[in-house]
Design a protein around this nucleic acid. Sequence first.
DNA 1: AGCTCCACCTATTAGC
DNA 2: TGCTAATA
DNA 3: GTGGAGC
Length: 289
Amino acid sequence: MPELPEVEIVRRGAHHWFAGRRIRSVAVSNPRAIRRHEQGEADFIGQLVGATITGTQRRGKYFWFTLDSGDVLVVHLGMSGQVLVQQAADEPNKHLRVRLTFDNDVDELWFVDQRTFGGMFIDEAADENSLPVSLTHIAPDPLSAEFDLRNTVRRMRAKQSPVKAVLLDQSVVSGIGNIYADESLWRARLHWQRPASSVTPARLREVLDHSREVMTDALAAGGTSFDSLYVNVNGSSGYFSRRLAAYGREGEPCLRCGSPLVREQFANRSSFRCPRCQRRGKWSRAENG
DNA sequence: AGCTCCACCTATTAGC
DNA sequence: TGCTAATA
DNA sequence: GTGGAGC
Ligand SMILES: [Zn+2]
């Protein structure tokens, strides 16, 4: 599942290959991929053909190409999206949804997405940072310069929901998904179900600091890949999955205390935690200090 | 308004 | 093998 | 992973 580190890896690759290129053609093979472009397919194609990509930006799990038209092309990978650099002669891909060709006639951008939760759309820039209007409700992510730790802690404390739900709320803090939420909570020794309002500001600060650290480490490792669904623009996997301490480790020993990790259901996804290090009460803080 | 939960898809894997 | 359920 | 429906 692409979260901040995986999206950032893809953005960097996309920038390297496509910044400065002029779009020659656009083919949409599954209109669902551009469902968030409300003006429809013809408008989507019409706005892109002839436009030049001037750069790339990212906020949380969204990234976008800035265009010389002044608008931006927003990309979200959903659960299984890929942005690949392909050559025209490459073998067809069953899950190809959108295909862009460029003025050099060699390298193409293929948006490939098995589950079709991801997509692309054109939007206008809301400010001089080119933040798309449709993303103004997305909060800054912990790796961005605009991230305000104190303000984020204050907003988290106002929530009655489980602290994990708040970490996943992109309007409070962006970029964190199921994997890095569990990793951050494990590092902070916090039970995912604690109401955010019941957690002290100091501990909320800690869990946010841990999210920044774990996502920085994951970025350096090329992201987390469990299978071939998450890959960079060249189709390669990242190496962070082998360093996960919580996610996917049901029954395996906690790397701090050796207790077998447990798996619990949260909404309709899985949560992994250590039953000893991550207990509900405040006493879980004291041990293993 | 705040919060929870489910639909949106395709594919793979586990279990009967 | 072939179906359903669970999970990503 | 996200947006929207519903309590
Ligand atoms: Zn433990």
